[in-house]
Amino acid sequence: MIPEGSLLAAHDLRKTYGSTPALDGASFSVHPGEVVAVMGPSGSGKSTLLHCLAGIITPDSGTITYAGRELSAMSDAERSALRRSDFGFVFQFGQLVPELTCVENVALPLRLNGVKRKAAERTALEWMERLEVDDLGPQRPGEVSGGQGQRVAVARALAASPKVIFADEPTGALDSLNGERVMELLTEAARSANVAVVLVTHEARVAAYSDRDVTVRDGRARDLEHAV
């Protein structure tokens, strides 16, 4: 069931919202340090798959294993703790806390993990430097451009040294140039830190930054290169 050596694997996930099935027997796996693109048309269940994998929602049936632990057997608190310590997130928009400054936003996951403020903000600044946005530290998200904001979000996802980053259409609201730069920085940083990335996108050029792609169609995920 679980592919050899995988960090996070899901098998036969099913999830229904009302009467519409969002996932219908989807399987998925990602290895440490691997960048996997999850593609598929709108409404195919990509985001639902990502939310299930990240333990944000629980599937109706099926198993999700992370580092040998069964996710669906965990309590909500345990899954929250796992997300704080092992996972990072990048969304399309509206993810930065508008009243916190950029550096405070980046430091937020660290602080939620109990890191002291000074230390957290120092680490946050290092990551912002890697994503070339360290000069935005004291500004608020409302005062920076979309591309800059998204880089801040990427820095935030990386700041707490997660094992997996979940990125849901991270370039969806950006133009090509900014989108490319964000993807470049994200994948580079993830590869050098051996962080796995689950990248949900419907754009091929974004998916091209991955090592492998998986297509979700009608609630089923297919790994075309390895399955056939």
């Binding site: 091929a204 050029r205 998916a207 091209a208 930054y209 792609d213 297509t215 075309l224």
Partner: peptide, 20 residues
């Protein structure tokens, strides 16, 4: 079509890598 998509994506991945 799926097979073709994969092939395209693979090519794109190679090009992206070269570009980087």
């Amino acid at each position: 079509l799926d097979t073709q998509r994969s092939a395209h994506l693979r090519m794109m991945r190679i090009l992206t890598d070269r570009k980087r």
